[in-house]
Amino acid sequence: MSEASVLYDAPGPRAQRRNLLFAAVIVAVIIAMVGWVLWQFESKGQLTEAKWHPFLTANLWTTYVLPGAVGTLTAAAVSIVLALVLGLLLGMGRLSDSRPVRWACSVFVEFFRAVPVLIMMLFAYFLFALYDVFPSRQLALAGVITGLTLYNGAVIAEIVRAGVYALPRGQREAAVALGLRPGQTLRLILLPQAVTSMLPVLVSQMVVVLKDTAIGYQITFVEMVRQGTNIGSAYSNYIPALLVIAALMISLNFALSALATRLEARMRQSRRTPDPLPVNTGVQEDTPGTPAA
C-alpha cells in the first residue's frame, strides 16, 4: 500500500495537471517575492560587493567565524556531557524508592523546566562575576554552560523517566519474580535498556542544546550569532553576515537532526536493539507539571 494513497487518492491525469499548474503559480509567486526582497536589499546597498567580498577573505573566517564556532561547539559539548550526567542522576532520583529523594528531585526538575534558559544564564553569569568564581575570559562560557546544563539536565531526567516507563512492564515483573531488589532492577535491567532506547531522543536534544548556545548572545558569550553581529560591526555588512551565519548554523543543526532520525529508523529495524523512544519531532521540550508521556 503506497503511503500517499492512505490520506488522499493517487492523482489522476486531471489532478496531475492541476498540481503542475499549482507548482507553476507558486514558483512564480516565490520568484516574485524573492525578487522584491533582493530589490529592496539592493536599494539599501546590501548587495554591494563591499559587503559580500569580506567573506572571501581568510581573515574574516579566522578572526570571527572560527572563534564563534569554537565557542558554540565547546559550550554545546560540555553542556551535553554535564547535562547527561545530571539528567541520569536526577532521573534515577525521580524513580527511586525513597520518598524524600523522589520529592527533592521532582522539585528540582520541575523548577528548572519552568525557568527560561536566558534567566538562568543571566543569573549564573552575574553570580560568577560577583563572587569571582571564574576568570573573566571564561565568565560568559561558564554562564552559558550552567544555564544549559541545568535546563537540559532536567529535560533529560524526564526523558530517562519516559524511557523507563516505556519499557514493557514484563521486564520489571520478571526481575522482581527472580528476586532482584528495586534498586538492582533499576540499575541492571531497566536503565540499560532505557538508555539505549533513548539514544535518538538524546541526539535530538543535542540539537536543542546547540541551538540554545545562541542565547548566550545576550551575555556577550562569543558564539556564532554574536560573531555574526561582530562581523557586521567590523565590515558594516550586518545582513549578509547574519545570512551567512544562519546558513552555517542551519546546516549543522539539520545534519544532527537527520542523524537522530536515521538513528531512530535503524534502531526500529534492527532486532538487537530495544524499540527506540519516538523522536518527538513536534515538541522541543517537556511540560513542567505533566507526567512523562
Binding site: 540539537v207 541551538k211 548556545t213 542565547i215 548572545y217 550569532v225 544562519a246 548554523m249 542551519i250 543543526n253
Partner: peptide
C-alpha cells in the same frame, strides 16, 4: 526548526 530563535528575532 534548525535556526536559533535569537537569529530569527535579530
Amino acid at each position: 526548526r534548525n535556526t536559533p530563535l535569537t537569529l530569527i528575532i535579530l
